[in-house]
Amino acid sequence: MPGDELLVAGVDEAGRGPLAGPVFAAAVILDAHRPIAGLDDSKKLTAARREVLAAQIKVQALAWRITWTEAAEIDRINILQATLAAMRAACRGLDIVPGLILVDGNRLPTGLPCVARALIGGDASEPSIAAASILAKTARDAWCLELHRRYPLYAFDRHKGYGTALHLARLAEYGPCPEHRRSFAPVRRSLVDA
């Protein structure tokens, strides 16, 4: 259990840009006495390496939490507010209250349980934020694989919901599925064109 050191929770999100599905957020308090080698911004790691690190984080961290905001809520309150809501829920859901929260980016959620700082590029410089980015990304990727099983015509296993040429072609051909974000322009256009 932690001693007198300041407990820092790192927070990051995954899935702000995709056209479908929830935005995920994670908060992680690492154990200073059990460092995890190789933590980095999840985008700089291979999928296989992220999976290995995610399993290690879940075992070795003092506390972690993954939360998400659904597509319908994103459409209702907008992607920024939905992202901040997921981050707030992740922080408040930790089993240990941290002394400091470091959030990747330039915006802080309201209602956090302690003092917090926004840190642009924090996922590349702060291990706890890197750990959070890995948990959020692996959770969202797993969700996309499940979505692919439910709606295989859209190829969510390949584009993970991002607006790739393949995804836009499938969206144009089949229209949106229930998990598409109707407030995002390409999805909105596909509804008009249908």
Results as ranks from 00 to 15, higher is better:
Gln56Ile: 10
Gln56Lys: 14
Ile57Ala: 00
Lys58Gln: 14
Ala61Trp: 04
Ala63Gln: 09
Trp64Met: 00
Arg65Lys: 13
Ile66Leu: 13
Glu70His: 13
Asp75Ile: 12
Asp75Gln: 08
Arg76Thr: 13
Ile77Tyr: 07
Leu80Thr: 12
Ala82Cys: 08
Thr83Cys: 08
Ala86Tyr: 10
Met87Asn: 03
Arg88Asn: 10
Ala89Trp: 02
Cys91Ala: 11
Arg92Tyr: 01
Ile96Leu: 15
Ile96Thr: 03
Val97Ser: 05
Leu100Trp: 11
Leu100Val: 07
Leu102Ser: 02
Val103Asn: 01
Asp104Trp: 11
Asn106Asp: 06
Arg107Gly: 06
Leu108Ser: 10
Leu112Pro: 08
Ala116Val: 03
Arg117Thr: 09
Ala118Thr: 04
Leu119Val: 15
Leu119Ser: 00
Gly121His: 03
Ala124Asp: 13
Ser125Phe: 08
Ser125Asn: 06
Ser125Lys: 11
Glu126Arg: 02
Pro127Val: 00
Pro127Ile: 00
Ser128Thr: 14
Ser128Trp: 00
Ile129Trp: 01
Ile129His: 04
Ala130Glu: 00
Ala130His: 00
Ala131Thr: 05
Ala132Met: 01
Ala136Phe: 03
Lys137Arg: 13
Thr138Asn: 07
Thr138Cys: 10
Thr138Ser: 09
Ala139Ile: 03
Arg140Leu: 06
Ala142Gly: 04
Cys144Lys: 04
His148Pro: 08
His148Gly: 00
His148Glu: 08
His148Met: 10
Arg149Ala: 14
Arg150Glu: 13
Arg150Cys: 08
Arg150Trp: 05
Arg150Thr: 10
Tyr151Met: 04
Leu153Gly: 06
Phe156Trp: 15
Phe156Gln: 09
Phe156Glu: 05
Phe156Ala: 08
Phe156Tyr: 12
Asp157Ala: 12
His159Trp: 03
His159Asn: 08
Lys160His: 07
Lys160Trp: 11
Lys160Val: 13
Gly161Phe: 04
Gly163Pro: 06
Thr164Gln: 11
Leu166Glu: 14
Leu166Asp: 10
Ala169Ser: 13
Ala169Cys: 06
Arg170Ile: 01
Leu171Gln: 13
Ala172Cys: 05
Tyr174Thr: 06
Tyr174Val: 03
Gly175Phe: 15
Gly175Val: 13
Pro178Trp: 10
Pro178Phe: 14
Glu179Gly: 05
Glu179Val: 06
His180Val: 14
His180Asn: 13
Arg181Tyr: 14
Pro186His: 14
Arg188Ala: 15
Arg188Asn: 10
Arg189Cys: 12
Arg189Trp: 07
Ser190Gly: 09
Ser190Pro: 11
Leu191Asn: 04
Leu191Tyr: 07
Leu191Arg: 05
Leu191Ile: 15
